[in-house]
């Protein structure tokens, strides 16, 4: 500590970007299919909690599967509500966040084994690194070169016309949200693996930062991934500056924490170029 360490910066940044990357890709499949997703946060959080509980009880792999499963359950709830019950995307997303926050608190308080509070069993970090950094590339190829990708793109742009062409928008959206659940589940599992234990509300707004990165990246996988990495870098700079005597040390950490949100606000104001949201975003 005490001086600015570039090596340390480059070492910590990818780890800080990881959860953002995974969650942002989850947001991508959802929003490309036309479903506004403000519930990335909740889906990640429930996965954190369930991964922690099940890893302790059954080992890291079952823990990961449990976390993904829990996020998928919430994602499917989102799908059922928006597609079958025609509930507004925002309202259902918000309700899911509230439920996830409450449920993770409830499960953690009631089912954590007090006799085994040590570190939870972990998967190798490399697993998450490979998954998170390969995912944007895979999604990029998927969107450009496959039948499923074309249909996802089409449904997000205009569900009615896609239906006329024999594509079932509801099916496409269920699958898209399934992917959202899996990716957010992975993101949550990584967070709790990295932190070593579950803490109430431990996602700390990362789901919203991931959404911000998605918007900054114009709803495209590679630019969104780059935005996630930039936010991770920002986070690691801020951690370094805390307690260092270098230039900028007088700036409170809250300022750095606000930067991703501020950047997104500026992007939304159109000061960073044209708004490229999927045309059918939010349509029933």
């Amino acid at each position: 500590m005490g001086s600015f360490d570039l090596i340390l910066l480059l070492k910590t940044a990818p780890g800080l970007s990881l959860a953002l990357l995974l969650a942002a890709m989850g947001g991508l499949t959802s929003e490309r299919s036309g479903i506004i997703n403000i519930a990335l946060e909740g889906k990640m959080l429930i996965s954190c909690c369930v991964t922690a509980l099940m890893s302790v009880a059954f080992g890291p792999w079952i823990g990961l599967l449990g976390g993904i499963g829990a996020a998928v359950v919430l994602a499917m709830l989102h799908a059922v509500l928006t597609q079958m019950y025609r509930v507004d995307h925002i309202v259902s997303g918000m309700a899911i966040n509230i439920i996830a926050f409450g449920a993770s608190n409830f499960l953690d308080k009631k089912f954590t084994d007090i006799n085994r509070t040590g570190e939870i069993p972990q998967l190798p970090f490399e697993f998450y690194y490979v998954a998170a950094f390969a995912l944007p590339l895979v999604l990029w190829l998927y969107l450009r070169r496959t039948k499923g990708g074309l249909r996802l793109w089409a449904v997000g742009n205009d569900p009615d016309k896609a239906r006329q062409m024999g594509v079932d928008p509801v099916k496409v959206r269920y699958l898209a949200l399934l992917a959202t659940g899996v990716f957010c589940g992975l993101a949550g599992a990584w967070l709790v693996t990295n932190a070593g234990r579950f803490v109430d509300g431990m996602t700390a707004g990362r789901g919203f930062i991931a959404l911000a990165a998605l918007i900054l990246g114009g709803w495209r996988p590679i630019p969104a991934a780059l935005a996630c990495i930039a936010f991770g870098l920002l986070d690691s700079i801020q951690l370094q500056l805390q307690g260092s005597k270098l230039l900028g040390a007088g700036i409170p950490s809250q300022f750095w924490n606000s930067l991703p949100y501020l950047a997104t606000l500026i992007a939304l104001a159109g000061l960073l170029g044209r708004n490229r949201a999927p045309a059918g975003l939010g349509k029933p």
Binding site: L81, Y85, A95, I96, N97, I98, I99, G102, N105, K109
Partner: peptide, 16 residues
């Protein structure tokens, strides 16, 4: 936390 779950469910049911 159970209160959060309850409120979330009330919102969902009512919105539907």
């Amino acid at each position: 936390g159970l209160n959060g779950v309850l409120i979330g469910l009330i919102i969902i049911v009512f919105a539907a």
